[in-house]
């Protein structure tokens, strides 16, 4: 009897453990998604009234795609470039902090995080001042007469930093780079230093040791960092709004305009869905390429 009851308890335990998480997902993910999907397939007979009719209007999706294709492409391009920049900046930094910083490790980690105690918005507005026509960044370039050079290599457009696509991508990179550094740092920090010693003992060059030992072991961190960077960056619209121009609008601002300015909830919901679907597919493909067994480790 006692054995049976403990067995039953054992069977129930996983469900009990998964319960809170599932409840959370159902309440705050599945239910809203269901509502969103219903709205995406509805029509609003009167734009000013809050009522919908579920008419299975799939055309909301095609309408949204054809109307907002440029913004969709732009969002993913900007987010993609920003994510790559985040890896290029974040990985060496995380590597340094994990392996070379010694007793300054905690201090350096703290310094990386400190700017993020300030509001996202305030930090982005600060970039307006830094990048502006009379700001310090352009001031240095002008003093060195380098503006034509930076124009040529695409860092500036027509002698301006601010209100360019470069500024938007730069803003995205800056705002999300910490989300790249931290996961990579965690995965690097976990690596047993003796593995690298072993590689050295086996006559591996430092470069080969990095490529064959450190890099593969840190990939889960890169993967997590990529997700944490790319997804919010693609959905972000503050950077595009504050640092970009009329030709750098991203998908987030279009969804918000559809909701708030045009009262077109169905198309806004459809556009949100399309956006999430593309991201989900992208993440699955990415996970497949990077190898999921690495990630479960």
């Amino acid at each position: 009897m006692a054995g049976e009851s403990s067995l039953r308890k054992g069977r129930k335990a996983p469900y009990a453990l998964i319960g809170p998480g599932m409840l959370w997902l159902i309440l705050f993910f599945l239910v809203p998604m269901w509502t969103l999907l219903r709205i995406a397939l509805s029509e609003k007979p009167n734009a000013f009234l809050p009522d919908y009719e579920l008419t299975w209007r799939w055309a909301n999706f095609s309408d949204a795609i054809s109307r907002f294709q440029p913004e969709l492409i732009r969002s993913f391009t900007y987010a993609g470039v920003a994510t790559i920049l985040c890896i290029l900046i974040g990985y060496p930094l995380a590597y340094f902090v994990a392996f070379k910083a010694g007793r300054f490790r905690a201090l350096l980690l703290g310094l990386i995080m400190v700017p993020f105690f300030t509001s996202f918005l305030i930090r982005t507005i600060a970039w307006q001042t830094i990048l502006g026509q009379d700001g310090p960044a352009l001031g240095v370039l002008k003093a060195l007469s380098l503006v034509s050079v930076t124009d040529a290599i695409g860092l500036t457009s027509n002698g301006a930093f601010l209100n360019t696509p470069q500024a938007v991508i730069g803003g995205l990179t800056y705002n999300f780079v910490a989300f790249m550094i931290l996961p990579i740092y965690v995965s690097l920090e976990k690596i047993d230093p003796r593995l690298m010693e072993a590689a050295r003992d086996l006559y591996s060059t430092p470069a080969a040791a990095f490529r064959k030992v450190v890099l593969p072991l840190s990939l889960p961190g890169v993967f997590a960092g990529t997700l944490l960077t790319f997804i919010p960056a693609a959905g972000d619209y503050i950077n595009a709004e504050l640092l970009g121009n009329v030709k750098t609008g991203m998908i987030g601002s279009q969804i918000s305009k559809l909701f708030l300015k045009e009262s077109n909830y169905p198309e806004a919901a459809a556009l949100s869905f399309i956006f999430m679907a593309i991201i989900t597919v992208g993440v699955l493909v990415y996970a497949k390429i990077l190898g999921t067994e690495e990630l479960s480790a």
Binding site: Y237, G252, S256
Partner: peptide
């Protein structure tokens, strides 16, 4: 995504 930014 928008919800996160909206209050700000």
């Amino acid at each position: 995504m928008t919800e996160r930014i909206d209050p700000e």
